[in-house]
Simulated assay, not measured.
Amino acid sequence: MAEGIFRHLVAEAGLTGRFTIDSAGTGGWHEGEPPDRRSIATAKGHGIDISGQHARRIRSSDFRDFDLILAMDRDNVAALETIAPPEASIRLFGDIALRTGEDIPDPYYGGPAGFELVYTRLLTGCSSLLEALGAERASCSGNTSSVR
Protein backbone atom coordinates (compact mmCIF):
# COMPACT_ATOMS: atom_id res chain seq x y z
CA MET A 1 0.00 0.00 0.00
CA ALA A 2 2.86 2.41 0.72
CA GLU A 3 3.97 2.43 -2.91
CA GLY A 4 0.45 3.11 -4.14
CA ILE A 5 -0.24 5.81 -1.57
CA PHE A 6 3.04 7.60 -2.25
CA ARG A 7 2.52 7.38 -6.03
CA HIS A 8 -0.97 8.83 -5.60
CA LEU A 9 0.27 11.73 -3.46
CA VAL A 10 3.14 12.47 -5.85
CA ALA A 11 0.71 12.51 -8.80
CA GLU A 12 -1.70 14.80 -6.94
CA ALA A 13 1.20 17.17 -6.27
CA GLY A 14 2.11 17.17 -9.98
CA LEU A 15 5.54 15.67 -9.25
CA THR A 16 5.27 12.31 -11.01
CA GLY A 17 8.34 12.78 -13.19
CA ARG A 18 10.49 13.82 -10.26
CA PHE A 19 10.37 10.54 -8.31
CA THR A 20 11.08 6.89 -8.97
CA ILE A 21 8.89 4.88 -6.62
CA ASP A 22 8.90 1.12 -6.15
CA SER A 23 8.39 -1.49 -3.47
CA ALA A 24 9.95 -4.86 -2.82
CA GLY A 25 10.05 -7.56 -0.20
CA THR A 26 12.95 -9.16 1.60
CA GLY A 27 11.53 -12.57 0.70
CA GLY A 28 10.43 -13.84 -2.68
CA TRP A 29 7.48 -16.01 -1.67
CA HIS A 30 4.89 -13.69 -3.30
CA GLU A 31 7.00 -12.59 -6.28
CA GLY A 32 4.91 -11.66 -9.30
CA GLU A 33 1.63 -11.65 -7.36
CA PRO A 34 -0.64 -8.62 -6.98
CA PRO A 35 -1.21 -7.08 -3.54
CA ASP A 36 -3.48 -8.85 -1.08
CA ARG A 37 -7.12 -8.40 -2.14
CA ARG A 38 -7.83 -6.64 1.17
CA SER A 39 -5.06 -4.11 0.51
CA ILE A 40 -6.49 -3.52 -2.95
CA ALA A 41 -9.98 -3.03 -1.49
CA THR A 42 -8.75 -0.70 1.26
CA ALA A 43 -6.79 1.47 -1.15
CA LYS A 44 -9.68 1.47 -3.64
CA GLY A 45 -12.00 2.64 -0.88
CA HIS A 46 -9.77 5.70 -0.59
CA GLY A 47 -9.60 6.32 -4.35
CA ILE A 48 -6.22 4.66 -4.96
CA ASP A 49 -5.78 1.79 -7.43
CA ILE A 50 -2.94 -0.56 -6.47
CA SER A 51 -4.25 -3.55 -8.41
CA GLY A 52 -1.54 -3.19 -11.07
CA GLN A 53 1.33 -3.54 -8.60
CA HIS A 54 3.19 -6.84 -8.37
CA ALA A 55 5.43 -8.20 -5.63
CA ARG A 56 9.12 -8.56 -6.22
CA ARG A 57 12.13 -9.36 -4.11
CA ILE A 58 14.68 -6.66 -3.39
CA ARG A 59 17.69 -6.76 -5.74
CA SER A 60 21.28 -5.74 -5.09
CA SER A 61 20.84 -3.02 -7.73
CA ASP A 62 18.12 -1.40 -5.58
CA PHE A 63 20.77 -0.30 -3.09
CA ARG A 64 22.49 1.60 -5.89
CA ASP A 65 19.40 2.79 -7.76
CA PHE A 66 17.42 4.21 -4.82
CA ASP A 67 18.55 7.09 -2.63
CA LEU A 68 16.28 5.99 0.18
CA ILE A 69 14.96 2.55 1.12
CA LEU A 70 12.26 2.47 3.76
CA ALA A 71 11.44 -0.67 5.70
CA MET A 72 8.11 -1.05 7.43
CA ASP A 73 9.51 -2.79 10.52
CA ARG A 74 12.74 -3.39 12.38
CA ASP A 75 13.03 -7.01 11.24
CA ASN A 76 13.16 -5.84 7.63
CA VAL A 77 15.66 -3.09 8.47
CA ALA A 78 17.92 -5.78 9.99
CA ALA A 79 17.44 -8.10 7.00
CA LEU A 80 18.27 -5.31 4.56
CA GLU A 81 21.34 -4.24 6.50
CA THR A 82 22.79 -7.75 6.19
CA ILE A 83 22.69 -7.62 2.37
CA ALA A 84 23.18 -3.90 1.66
CA PRO A 85 26.45 -2.14 0.95
CA PRO A 86 27.56 0.24 3.72
CA GLU A 87 26.58 3.36 1.75
CA ALA A 88 22.92 2.29 1.35
CA SER A 89 20.37 4.53 3.02
CA ILE A 90 18.00 2.17 4.83
CA ARG A 91 15.57 3.69 7.29
CA LEU A 92 12.55 2.64 9.27
CA PHE A 93 9.39 4.19 7.81
CA GLY A 94 8.21 4.98 11.33
CA ASP A 95 11.39 6.96 12.01
CA ILE A 96 11.69 9.04 8.87
CA ALA A 97 8.07 9.39 7.74
CA LEU A 98 6.12 9.28 11.00
CA ARG A 99 8.82 10.40 13.44
CA THR A 100 7.37 7.96 16.00
CA GLY A 101 9.80 5.07 15.61
CA GLU A 102 6.88 2.68 15.26
CA ASP A 103 6.80 -0.44 13.14
CA ILE A 104 4.02 -0.60 10.57
CA PRO A 105 2.24 -3.87 11.32
CA ASP A 106 1.53 -6.43 8.64
CA PRO A 107 -2.28 -6.64 8.57
CA TYR A 108 -2.30 -9.97 6.70
CA TYR A 109 -3.59 -12.11 9.59
CA GLY A 110 -6.17 -9.60 10.80
CA GLY A 111 -9.44 -8.21 9.57
CA PRO A 112 -10.45 -5.10 7.63
CA ALA A 113 -9.81 -2.81 10.60
CA GLY A 114 -6.11 -3.72 10.49
CA PHE A 115 -5.88 -2.78 6.82
CA GLU A 116 -7.59 0.54 7.53
CA LEU A 117 -5.19 1.24 10.41
CA VAL A 118 -2.19 0.49 8.22
CA TYR A 119 -3.62 2.65 5.43
CA THR A 120 -4.05 5.57 7.84
CA ARG A 121 -0.49 5.26 9.19
CA LEU A 122 0.93 4.97 5.67
CA LEU A 123 -1.07 7.95 4.41
CA THR A 124 0.13 10.08 7.31
CA GLY A 125 3.73 8.98 6.80
CA CYS A 126 3.71 9.28 3.01
CA SER A 127 2.25 12.78 3.24
CA SER A 128 5.01 13.83 5.66
CA LEU A 129 7.65 12.11 3.55
CA LEU A 130 6.55 13.92 0.40
CA GLU A 131 6.64 17.22 2.24
CA ALA A 132 10.15 16.49 3.55
CA LEU A 133 11.47 15.26 0.20
CA GLY A 134 10.02 18.30 -1.51
CA ALA A 135 12.02 20.53 0.84
CA GLU A 136 15.19 18.49 0.33
CA ARG A 137 14.71 18.06 -3.42
CA ALA A 138 17.86 19.93 -4.35
CA SER A 139 20.05 17.26 -2.71
CA CYS A 140 17.98 14.14 -3.46
CA SER A 141 17.22 12.50 -6.79
CA GLY A 142 13.91 11.28 -5.40
CA ASN A 143 14.31 7.55 -5.80
CA THR A 144 12.31 5.95 -2.99
CA SER A 145 11.53 2.33 -2.25
CA SER A 146 9.58 0.64 0.51
CA VAL A 147 10.18 -2.83 1.85
CA ARG A 148 7.85 -5.18 3.67
Rank of each mutant, 00 (worst) to 15 (best):
I90P: 03
S141V: 10
E31S: 10
A24W: 01
T16Q: 06
S61Q: 09
R64E: 10
G28K: 03
Y109V: 03
Y119K: 11
E12A: 12
T120W: 00
G94H: 05
L117W: 03
R7I: 13
R57G: 09
I21P: 04
A43F: 12
T82R: 14
S51A: 15
D75E: 13
F63R: 03
I40E: 14
E12Q: 10
R137E: 10
P35Q: 05
T20R: 13
H54M: 15
M72H: 05
D62F: 10
T42Q: 11
T26E: 00
R121M: 07
D67C: 09
S39T: 15
R7V: 06
G32E: 06
H46W: 15
L117D: 07
H8R: 11
S127I: 00
A97F: 05
V118Q: 04
G45I: 13
F93Y: 13
D67K: 01
I104N: 01
M72R: 05
E33H: 02
A97I: 13
D95L: 08
D106N: 06
L70A: 08
L15K: 08
S39P: 08
G14S: 01
A97L: 11
V147F: 00
A11T: 09
E116Q: 11
I58R: 02
F63V: 03
A113K: 01
N143C: 04
S145F: 00
E116I: 03
H46D: 15
S128I: 00
G134R: 05
M1A: 12
A55D: 08
E3L: 12
C126A: 05
E136D: 14
P35S: 08
L133M: 15
I48T: 14
E31W: 06
G114V: 05
T100K: 02
R148S: 02
A78K: 09
L130R: 02
C126G: 04
V77F: 00
